[in-house]
């Protein structure tokens, strides 16, 4: 499970939606580049110079001219990665809460077992300490996503996913804002391609806790999903 010793994954593109994460995105990009040489950050109209930081750290940076939302940034990155011939598209958060070892393990799993989609899950083991209230909200989100997608996932709204190119081509996100996390599961489920879940460890740092989705946001997500 050591990330340093493995050879770089050069047929995968890491897609990192980026919005006002200048404080951490440089370290995140430098941390993933040895394992994933192809990293595209989609800067979604940041006002803190995140794009320049990510570019200096060595990522390929695309910039939305205006802020559109995380779902829109994700879709732009996926489309770009496919256009560059990615065999695997890995979605990865910019705030440093995902571990590159998990991402690499998930690509390995997809390759080894010939599955098209690997979802990261916080709840397959007990490494991730999310806090009671957050656990409850996430469990409700999981239930809601499973009801509407027909898949049986243990985690929803986890930003770490691996999609083989054929699965990624089935994704057309129309939810620009946070509700894309359910939409992407729905669209990937519709591809009928084989999928797995893989346990991941989400690092809740003070930084990510400070920026993370507030509980209010789950109300917005629900409204976006119902009225659209």
């Amino acid at each position: 499970m050591t990330g340093m010793s493995r050879p770089p994954v050069d047929d995968a593109w890491l897609v990192v939606p980026l919005f006002n994460e200048a404080a951490v995105v440089g370290d995140v990009v430098r941390g993933v580049l040895p394992t994933f040489p192809h990293v595209v950050c989609v800067d979604d109209g940041s006002s803190d110079g995140s794009a320049a930081v990510a570019r200096a750290a060595g990522a390929r940076v695309l910039e939305h001219p205006v802020n559109l939302g995380q779902g829109a940034a994700l879709q732009t990155g996926i489309t770009y990665a496919l256009s560059r011939g990615a065999r695997y598209v890995v979605t990865f958060d910019a705030d440093g809460q995902h571990r590159v070892e998990d991402a690499a393990d998930m690509v390995d799993l997809a390759r080894r077992e010939d599955v098209a989609i690997v979802f990261g899950s916080r709840f397959l083991d007990d490494r991730t300490d999310a806090g009671l209230l957050k656990r409850i909200v996430l469990k409700v989100a999981v239930w809601f996503t499973n009801q509407s997608t027909g898949l049986r996932l243990t985690d929803a709204h986890n930003g770490l996913r691996v999609m083989r190119a054929d699965a990624a081509r089935g994704v057309r996100l129309r939810q620009d804002r946070m509700a894309h996390a359910s939409e992407i599961v729905l669209q990937l489920g519709r591809t009928r391609l084989p999928w797995r879940e893989h346990p991941v460890h989400v690092l809740y740092t003070d930084y990510s806790r400070g920026k993370g989705q507030s509980l209010w946001n789950s109300v917005n997500i629900l409204v976006d999903l119902v009225f659209r």
Binding site: L62, H64, P65, T76, T79, Y80, S83
Partner: peptide, 25 residues
Amino acid sequence: ARELTLARAALVDRGVVPDVAGPDA
């Protein structure tokens, strides 16, 4: 906006324009 971003990215990848931030970034 996506079309604009991807069109610009394609130009950068082909070396037509340099990969720098926009003027008001």
